[in-house]
Design a protein around this nucleic acid. Structure first.
Length: 278
DNA sequence: CTTGTGTCCTGTAGGC
DNA sequence: TGCCTACAGGACACAA
């Protein structure tokens, strides 16, 4: 689930609930989720700290604690956060932070690809390399053709792969890159440096629009997705997907009638309409 | 520095 | 049923 719109939705829901609460007991069911510092140091450093703020950068959630340290959570492919008062362990629960007033923040993650860090801003900058190197957020006003075009000109890799490069587009993942390329009418296997200035302009606008719409619909929760947002609800953007996960289905653009195809780019599935995308 | 490939880890769906 | 393979919202290590 978690690309920029999903992580932002998680942040918006959690910020209303967790800011101002104090962290009590922390249960660690899988210590390899904790990447820095050691699990024992993590536990002693976090206990009793108040959550002062919660921000997002790319797909990273950044909790500022009263100790001035930052708790950084990346959900990976299958991570989720739930805010709950239920004490029963979830099926794929990996971490549980008890919060005051009988609540808890639970991280579940079936594939255990999520990562958690705790440290001073300086330590985080040093340790979480991906966070330090993030490019611009496509939903920011600075994400324009003038930002994107020079970056793409320097790259001959497939445009789909470059969109997934977090140093270029912070927060973009497999779903929204395919959707943006469809909306911009660009095939995912085009070399990035083959895109015209006009195409890059369409792409920059499409990225911004699709991510913004994703946020407005509380992100994407695919049909087989058992996991939910922190409040237990599902996202709604899956109803508006035009190509992702639609292999063999008919193109949604009026008058097209083409069939959505799937290909493999950089070991990831990529969906596109061969009639709408050139 | 860039690029393509493999790995991390676990669960599920589908073919036979 | 069971076994096997492919695939899954991400990031990173590595070799070339």
């Amino acid at each position: 689930m978690p690309e920029l719109p999903e992580v932002e939705t998680v942040r918006r829901q959690l910020v209303l609930q967790v800011v101002g609460r104090k962290i009590g007991e922390v249960k660690v069911w899988r210590r390899d989720i904790i990447r820095y510092p050691s699990a024992s140091q993590f536990l002693s450093a976090i206990k009793g700290k108040v959550i002062v703020s919660l921000n997002r950068r790319g797909k990273y959630l950044i909790f500022r604690l009263g100790s001035k340290k930052l708790l950084v959570i990346h959900l990976g492919m299958s991570g989720h956060l739930r805010f709950t008062r239920d004490n029963t362990k979830m099926r794929f629960e990996r971490l549980r932070f008890r919060l005051n007033r009988d609540r808890a923040l639970v991280m579940d993650d079936s594939r255990v690809l999520g990562r958690v860090y705790l440290g001073t801003p300086e330590e985080i900058k040093e340790v979480v390399k991906g966070l330090a190197r993030l490019g611009r957020e496509p939903i920011d006003s600075g994400f324009t053709k003038d930002y994107l075009y020079p970056l793409l000109q320097k790259r001959k890799a497939k445009i789909k792969s470059v969109l997934l490069d977090q140093r270029v587009c912070a927060g973009v993942g497999n779903i929204y890159s395919d959707e943006a390329l469809f909306r911009a009418g660009i095939l995912p296997n085009r070399p990035a440096n083959s895109l015209s200035y006009q195409e890059v302009e369409r792409l920059a606008k499409a990225l911004r629009a699709v991510l913004q719409e994703g946020i407005e619909h509380l992100g994407t929760t695919m049909e087989d997705e058992r996991y939910l947002l922190p409040d237990g609800n599902r996202g709604g953007f899956q109803k508006f997907l035009r190509v992702f996960s639609r292999e063999g289905e008919v193109c949604r653009r009026r008058q097209c009638g083409g069939t959505i195809l799937r290909t493999r780019i950089g070991n990831r599935s990529s969906y596109y309409c061969p009639r709408c995308q050139k």
